[in-house]
Nucleic acid binder design. Structure first.
Lengths: 332, 332
DNA sequence: ACGCGGGAGGTAAGCGTTTCCTGACGCCGG
DNA sequence: CCGGCGTCAGGAAACGCTTACCTCCCGCGT
């Protein structure tokens, strides 16, 4: 209308091949009702003209975009980065594109981003750790296809890590090592994985009344971990379980700066196994959340949904312990 | 055609507001020729129906998508993650969406991804550190609007960090500290920032013939840094300059495992200032590449280009030294 | 009182595809 | 030898929107 770009359309290909528009479309889409020789001629013409179908026109009529939306809380978090990477590479292998949005940890943004990006894609993969369950359920009802990461909702495909049982294993390990005063650095309140862990904590506390198990409010990043150092030291705990590796790293650093030895004076256990967990001093004991695998699995489910198939059942991966050197017996 | 989704179209809004399609379109697009009262009625109708314009139809006619493509070599690299984050948040603030592609460090993939994603977006922001300059120039000629990150090409908007002068500063610092045997861990061959640094290295070598300056081939990640440890130790150098922080972290860890003290026995200097550089032992001395700022600046240029304006001039940010504890005087 | 200008809203023409429907042609069977 | 059917290609509608163009109406000036 206003713009007249020198872009080649299906009509140009049709003209060059001496056939109709519909034949070009059929030939290029591999429709078997077109004569092989003709199809070859069309393909040749398309190749000479360097033609590619206009994706918007195609989407308008077909209702497909070959694009999915991914909403994550924060692109600065190594775990989400890894999930995104696994997801992106898997989707890309299937010729799908990825529209990513960073909700900046805001539940509101998660909701609106999910809905608005859904309009321009074929489906959304949502990672919304802190959205209240009723809100999530309500949102899920309006959003399809949808794959949830680290959350579940009835009838919705999802992939998640089992934070509860991994934490349980960590607690057992610490207990076995002899720790009886343990502090847990809770992440942001309202997080779904936080709730799973609270349950695990409760169960452990019930099973081991002899253990002094405290919870300390804390954020989700390294600064929060560092800020919690004095409280951890003040609690008299012999072991600290961090909400995630970021917190653990911050705590570990702050603790060591205060002259406290890890694990001799205090054991520290992280969660996630971010790439840098190997490189702290001492190397961080943590639980390895298979984030890349989570991303891939999310894509597999989305792909099935898009194909109109029943997606594989919801996946729950239990994080493997990554035993390194920040956890040891309590000081005697 | 085949799908008949119960989705509300502009016609529904028109019917409900009792006006024509064009009036709805005009009212919703803020066209001032529509009577304010009428416009309000239309907006009310749209709101009641929860109407949003179909983005594909809109794109088809307007040629705009409100989406830009970003191509990065590897989503696992903290620097690209940070660039993406800054870019994404800035674009999002202007109501633009971001389509990301991870080229898996492949130059071929970079090229094809850039072209194919361009077709479904309004412009591409390309981060292709290893694409040969002629290829880049050729690609740039076919791709517009385009913003380059850490690369330049004639007539193309770009933002970059000045790797050369930052490296020069690092070399000077090391020299001032007294180092006379310095080893540089080169990253992947063919990288543009590598070339800038090679120049800086040459200049330094010329200016300081008394310094034994060696280059060691190396990769770009922590494993590569670790793998280079023996070669570094074997070289007799008193200081090592790493291609990036990932390499520095791997090297630092491997060196210390070998019982070598940093910086007493060997100084190590990184590059990028990834978030974890603060948390190594000892904290890593490095050069702070303002990645998030680079991402934001790239978006600002793209936005100008999309608006048909002249983009701000190409930006060259010089990384600030982040002096921490891995560099000191050479052993006496 | 009539004509004219300007502003507001309607009509319709696309945008580039896909796909349904129809028509032509050739082949086979009766 | 003719009719019917199957195959393949073309015509045209539809997808949902923006916008150029046109019409209509109102108000003003002469």
């Amino acid at each position: 209308m206003v713009r007249r770009p020198a872009v080649v359309t299906i009509a140009d290909v049709a003209a060059r091949a001496g056939v109709s528009l519909s034949t070009v479309s059929r030939a290029l889409n591999g429709n078997p009702t077109v004569d092989p020789a003709l199809a070859a001629r069309v393909r040749a013409a398309a190749a000479e003209l360097d033609y590619t179908a206009n994706p918007w026109a195609r989407s308008l009529v077909s209702g497909r975009t070959q694009t999915i939306a991914v909403v994550v809380p924060d692109l600065a978090n190594p775990t989400f980065q890894t999930i995104l990477r696994g997801l992106g590479r898997a989707a890309s292998a299937d010729d799908f594109h990825v529209l990513v949005s960073d909700s900046a940890e805001s539940v509101d943004a998660e909701r609106t981003l999910a809905t608005t990006t859904r309009r321009r894609t074929d489906g959304v993969i949502l990672c919304a750790p802190r959205m209240p369950q009723p809100d999530l359920d309500a949102l899920a009802a309006t959003l399809t296809p949808l794959v949830l990461i680290n959350r579940t909702s009835p009838e919705v495909a999802s992939v998640r890590a089992d934070y509860g049982s991994a934490l349980r294993a960590q607690l057992d390990d610490l207990h076995r090592l002899g720790h009886r005063r343990i502090v847990y650095l809770a992440g942001a309140p309202g997080s779904a994985s936080g709730a799973q862990r609270a349950d695990a904590l409760d169960a452990f506390a019930a099973a081991h009344p002899e253990v002094d198990l405290r919870r300390l409010p804390c954020g989700v990043d390294a600064d929060a971990g560092a800020a919690a150092a004095d409280a951890v030291l003040g609690s008299g705990a012999t072991a600290a379980l961090a909400f995630n590796d970021l917190v653990a790293v911050g705590l570990l650093d702050a603790i060591r700066r205060r002259g406290c030895r890890v694990p001799d004076d205090l054991s520290i256990v992280g969660f996630d196994d971010i790439p840098f967990a190997r490189f702290t001093t001492p190397p961080l004991t943590t639980a390895a959340v298979p984030a890349e695998e989570l991303g891939r699995a999310a894509w597999v489910r989305m792909r099935a949904l898009l194909a109109g198939e029943a997606p594989p059942p919801s996946l729950t991966l239990v994080p493997e312990p990554a035993v390194r050197d920040t956890a040891g017996p309590p000081p005697s």
